[in-house]
Amino acid sequence: MSDDRLKLKNKKLKKDRTALKLGFFLILAAGLLFIACFGEYIVPYDPYAQDLSNALQPPSGSHLLGTDRYGRDLFSRIIIGAQTTIFSALALVAGITIVGTIIGVICGYVGGWVDSLIMRISDIFLAFPEMVFAIAIAGVLNGGIWSAAIAVGLIAWPRYARVARSQVLAMKNHQYMNAAKLMGTRWYKVILKHIMPNILGPIIVTAALDVGAMIMNLAGLSYLGLGVVPPTPEWGSMMSEGRSMLQTSPWIVLAPGLAIFITVVIFNLLGDTIRDILDPKQTRRTLNNHVQNMKAILSGRKKREKTLVE
């Protein structure tokens, strides 16, 4: 087989594999959504029912993931908690994607002082360390999952606005934008029909890659007691509740931690796959790349140490 044909075959294989990967992760994500939607019908126990005689039981046949200090079934609480965690993260990503994109498109399209003003405001938001700023905002608001979502949303929108804005600016220089205007196209039609379809790819990629991070942020705020108010089950606050018993009953922390880990990994890999499909120009983060990077960093550090010793 000639080299070219081999390359072509490899390319096709790669494409097939990406499609397969997308299907696989979509099914996993759909599974998570299914659990989140119909959790109430799956749970073996009432997630709120306390049973102090059964408190702090390790995982067993009757309690798959054990019980917490009030004797509530952890498995049931995690399944119900999926609803809060996943839905609030998805709603949050959808919200900031829409708001951020609208702001960015306005900045890019209108330009001038409007653009400068909004971009300077976004600079202010970007200047603070993300989590510290979110904690401050969530602290000022009343608490509860919505104030946590607002806090995370406030720190996340500038990124979306910037992606959308830079894309619009790149679009603006294309001749066909002028051509469309010269045909007498109205401004909103120029945005909807000519700009939006062209810039949607990078925005979807940003959003897809962000779902995992948003779950982490929300869980993080809940862990600090700034998100969901107990007794509503939420993975972050569940971990927080169990942290004083980490040495005696580690399953209370490990079970929701594992749930967060699995969910974030699934959504991140799904986002990666979507990126591979919509933005093929970006290099893929393969394991090999990571190993190479690590090697480079380590060898650099060794060299530096050597020179220091000498």
């Binding site: 294309h174 001749q175 066909y176 002028n178 051509a179 469309a180 029909k193 000519h194 379809p197 062209n198």
Partner: peptide, 12 residues
């Protein structure tokens, strides 16, 4: 315009 094809949106 000068560049043929640049008058058209490439994805429509």
């Amino acid at each position: 315009f000068q560049n043929p094809g640049m008058s058209f949106n490439p994805i429509r």
